[in-house]
Amino acid sequence: MSRGTSVRLQNLTKRFGRVVAVRDLDLEVNPGELVAFLGPSGCGKTTTLLMIAGIYRPTAGHVYFGDRRVDPLHPRDRDVGMVFQSYALYPHLTLFENIAFPLRLKRVPGEEVKRRVKATAELLGIGGILERRPAQVSGGQQQRAALARALVKEPQVLLLDEPLSNLDAQIRLSARAEIRRLQRELGVTAILVTHDQAEALAMADRVAVFSMGELQQYATPEELYHRPKNTFVAGFVGSPPMNLIEGEFTGDGFRSGELRLPLRQAPLGRGWLGVRPEHLRIAGEGHPARVLVVEPLGREAIVIVELFGHRLQILVAEGEKPAPDAEVRVAFPARALHYFDANGRRIGPE
């Protein structure tokens, strides 16, 4: 029962004075899909979301919902629901009136308002507290009320601006699953803005990674993780992030200072070698390194070692963690390496 529409951004650009917040963005979201906009703060992801909502007018480019061009339209004519990071509930209204607000503005008859608010609130498990005001309920309940307000008018597109970042860590995980379940059930097209890569990978069908106002990569979580398009994505996605070593490819190997790695089918020229912390091995053979710090995470531990002047993070099982200051040997598995050119673009291995 997909009632969502596709969302298409075409050459979308937003400038604030001289600052370019979003540059020439092309992106399409399929009907019923949940897409995450991921990036550090100030990367343009929220600006893009606000252009889709109709709060900001694009400096250039267009926004389409299905075949309908919506960028000249007022937000109220776009049929979108939105959840804000601060929830932005109206403090002077009860939760019932908060959720009913979009329907009242549409002049929906009173009986129907009551029915739809009740139904949406039940769906989100806040049916029992509708007479309270936002200040009288918990953060998690406020978040649900904000979600109910966004969903009550059955929008074609649901926009979520960091909806989970104000929640306690415990509730956050269950809220993730909850939002994902609702979105699937309702078939609404959803766009989630987040700076938390784990959240993006866990919730989204596809993730758009932003940096400095530009789209870096738009792919499924698996693709993003295993084939990052550039060093920014490689360093941003994954926790702990990918180790990146600057050096020179020599055709049959890679060298950086005293570090020399023989590689098959290596490119030529300066560039970056990337390897994820979980792929590095502390083994009997390999390159000599010294352990600087060991951070236990419970099931695993992050080991930070120094290897020919480079600091590398290595993820090891709890039982295999070395002692601080120990001399160890680090092995680079050939199958799990990533090559990037001097500009940070992925060049292999294919």
């Binding site: 937000p75 939105m82 932005a88």
Partner: peptide
């Protein structure tokens, strides 16, 4: 007043 609140109202369908 927070801008978010006004943005929310605009998205909710208010002029």
């Amino acid at each position: 007043l927070s801008w978010d609140m006004e943005m929310a109202a605009l998205v909710d369908g208010a002029s």
